[in-house]
């Protein structure tokens, strides 16, 4: 059953369907077929694979997923004009925050605490400093000066984000980025949405990968690493080379809040965890943290496995 090529209904689902059929008028439908949706979401290529007998139901599910993604992008995106996050950054406060904003910020806070501040959503002023530096002096590969870094670092501290039920407040000069976790969170919400409507056997790839309960999926790690079998779990990767400021050797987006510099230890960190938000946050946190703490971080953060890849290709594999 687990490895069969056919999309298989679980036994319980059979029983449920059969019982449901008693209260329903005829539903002459065939066995589930595989549908694959490809498009763009969260500013990247996205893919959803699902199984259902009826293409209209598959289409309806995709439509619902896209609406959910768009709804959450309106909350967390740094690139979508008017998003709740941009409002918060611009005004230093956000009234009547959505449940999602409160949930995600509370989740961030847990990972910030666990990683002793290595994972910090308030690192955004540092990123802005780098972006401005390379826009003005692309040749100065070393990045901004230490003084400039020290100046913005006083605005970086996740403990100064006040998450209230009716209002979120930042200290003056602070601004947030949720790019280290929002993709994972959104992936989880889409997974919840599908699961609550009775879907199983779904693979979501919205930047982070998550498999709903049901079949197993083969998923590759970066740089031709081992192929994993993903089932009812999530996989996320943080890679510095993903978005460099200047060339492969230059600084990249994974900035350490305290050193003010790009972390250089790993080429990439991949984490397998029960939820995509956990995998996403942990991959960033481990990437930025000292190697001796990686195993504890993985365990305390609810991750299951991690692959820490050095620039020379050596991979350290951790199991929680």
């Amino acid at each position: 059953m687990k490895t069969g090529a056919l999309p298989i209904l679980t036994r319980r689902r059979f029983v449920t369907i059969a019982a449901a059929a008693l209260v329903l008028p005829a539903g002459a439908t065939a066995r589930p077929r595989r549908f694959e949706w490809q498009g763009s979401a969260l500013g990247a290529r996205a893919k959803i694979v699902l199984y259902h007998p009826d293409p209209r139901a598959a289409q309806a599910a995709i439509t619902a997923c896209l609406a959910e993604i768009s709804r959450l992008e309106d909350q967390f995106s740094l690139y979508r004009p008017g998003s709740a996050l941009l409002q918060l950054n611009a005004a230093g406060q956000l009234a009547a925050p959505s449940h999602d904003m409160r949930r995600l910020l509370a989740q961030c806070r847990q990972y910030s605490d666990l990683s002793q501040g290595a994972f910090d959503p308030s690192v955004q002023p540092l990123w802005q400093l780098y972006a401005a530096h390379f826009a003005n002096q692309p040749a100065a590969i070393g990045g901004p000066s230490l003084d400039a870094i020290r100046a913005v670092q006083q605005h970086i501290d996740y403990r100064r984000i006040a998450i209230g039920p009716a209002e979120i407040r930042l200290d003056p000069g602070m601004s947030l980025t949720l790019n280290g976790i929002a993709q994972g969170y959104i992936t989880d919400r889409v997974a919840d949405l599908l699961r609550n409507s009775g879907w199983s056997n779904v693979l979501l790839n919205l930047g982070e990968i998550r498999a709903l309960p049901g079949r197993s999926w083969k998923v590759g790690l970066p740089d031709a690493g081992p192929t994993l079998v993903l089932s009812n779990s999530a996989l996320a990767t943080s890679a510095g080379a993903g978005s460099p400021f200047a060339g492969p050797a230059g600084p990249h987006h994974l900035l350490h809040p305290r050193t003010g510099r790009s972390a250089r230890r790993y080429a990439s960190v991949s984490v397998l965890a029960p939820t995509a938000a956990a995998a996403d946050a942990l991959s960033t946190a481990i990437y930025l943290s000292p190697p001796e703490g990686a195993a504890a971080l993985l365990r305390q953060g609810g991750g299951r496995q991690a692959w820490l890849r050095r620039a020379n290709g050596a991979v350290r594999h951790l199991t929680a």
Binding site: R13, L24, A57
Partner: peptide, 18 residues
């Protein structure tokens, strides 16, 4: 009047119940 996903809705409902 019988929407294609009615079965799924009932299913989802029952599954939640269970």
């Amino acid at each position: 009047a019988e929407p294609p996903d009615q079965l799924d809705r009932v299913l989802a409902y029952m599954q939640r119940q269970l």
